[in-house]
């Protein structure tokens, strides 16, 4: 990808202390993100899927340095975001923004739409109030609201419209990257389609890159160019969307895809059930995090954690089944 690379995440780890408190040692650590690496190109949609508690939201926050990592690196346009001073970070934030899941709790009910949408501008530029208002009006039109909405409060809008306000807030600084954390999960299906289409149109128009976090595989398939699936803090598989959906190579991806209830009564399949629950990240299994639920598990899976290998061009898995069968194997 070369200079098309916008975001590079390398060996990112985030641990949270368990228990403990003031003057008290934590009783243990949870590795919410456990050594994650990937890149996102300019203008690309990168999907991050996984079940609750897999660490996808924490990862999204780390990418924007909304929290500090335990170890690892994130570079944005070649610059290490964890090494830079606060003033520089603030300038960089103009180029990376976030959209949250819940359009109700992510907008301050006491702020007018104008103040909400222009807040990132106030923080990062020294434009005058009227200039900011003009930018905000322009952006509102772009996301399908009206300039007249600037003087309203969030409660005057429906859920879908609120999510448009959230999108407008992220866009008003003309960012290069948007982390969208479950942006349509709280919306009904007819409204969901409106917001997905809007995100797609804006991407084309403004050459945006998305890190699109979602638990909904059909939405991610629709939106994204590449998909990574996380399980207990690690990426299990990463591949271009068509390959990911049609030829998944990790048993977890396979199980996840088969569990989605297909909206066709003629295709009632007895799903291949994944037994049991996701293990607690407080006490993760040894070896491969997926092995207790995996149908193909063998000895090595219980002992050693597989690292991510490129098994086909741009297709990575962390699974002993695929290990050594990949590109390196073919080359030698």
């Amino acid at each position: 990808m070369g200079d098309r690379t916008l975001l590079q995440v390398t060996g990112l780890v985030k641990s949270f202390p368990l228990g403990g408190g003031f003057l008290k040692k934590p009783s243990g650590w949870v590795r919410a993100v456990d050594g994650v690496s990937f890149t996102v190109a300019r203008g690309e949609s990168f999907g991050l899927v996984g079940e609750s508690g897999c660490g996808k939201t924490t990862l999204g926050r780390l990418i924007l340095r909304l929290m500090e990592p335990t170890s690892g690196r994130v570079t944005f346009d070649g610059k290490d975001i964890f090494a830079m001073p606060r003033t520089e970070l603030l300038q960089l934030r103009r180029r990376m923004q976030i959209i949250f899941q819940d359009p109700y709790s992510s907008l301050d009910p006491r702020m007018k739409v104008e103040a909400i949408v222009t807040e990132p501008l106030r923080a990062t530029s020294n434009r005058t109030r009227s200039q900011r208002r003009r930018v905000a009006a322009e952006i509102l039109e772009k996301v399908g609201l009206r300039a007249g909405d600037l003087d309203k409060y969030p409660h005057e809008f429906s859920g879908g419209q609120r999510q448009r306000i959230g999108v407008a807030r992220a866009l008003c600084v003309r960012p290069d990257l948007i982390v969208a954390d479950e942006p349509v999960s709280a919306l009904d299906v007819s409204i969901q389609a409106q917001v997905i289409n809007l995100l797609g149109d804006l991407q084309e128009e403004m050459e945006l890159a998305y890190v699109f976090i979602s638990h909904d595989l059909s939405v991610v398939e629709h939106v994204c160019d590449r998909i990574a699936v996380m399980y207990l803090g690690s990426i299990m598989e990463l591949a271009p969307t068509v390959e990911f959906i049609r030829q998944p190579r990790h048993p977890y991806t396979e199980a996840l895809l088969k569990a989605v209830p297909f909206p066709d009564p003629h295709r009632r399949s007895e799903p291949v059930l994944l037994e049991g629950d996701v293990p607690s990240p407080v006490d993760p299994p040894t070896g491969c995090p997926f092995h207790p639920r995996c149908a193909y598990c063998f000895d090595r899976c219980r002992r050693e954690k597989p690292s991510s290998e490129e098994i086909e061009p741009d297709h990575w898995t962390a699974c002993w089944l695929n290990s050594g069968r990949g590109l390196e194997g073919e080359q030698t």
Partner: peptide
């Protein structure tokens, strides 16, 4: 129609 379908051909 408004629902994206897994493995459908409507991607993008």
């Amino acid at each position: 129609r408004s629902m994206p379908r897994l493995g459908g051909h409507d991607r993008g």
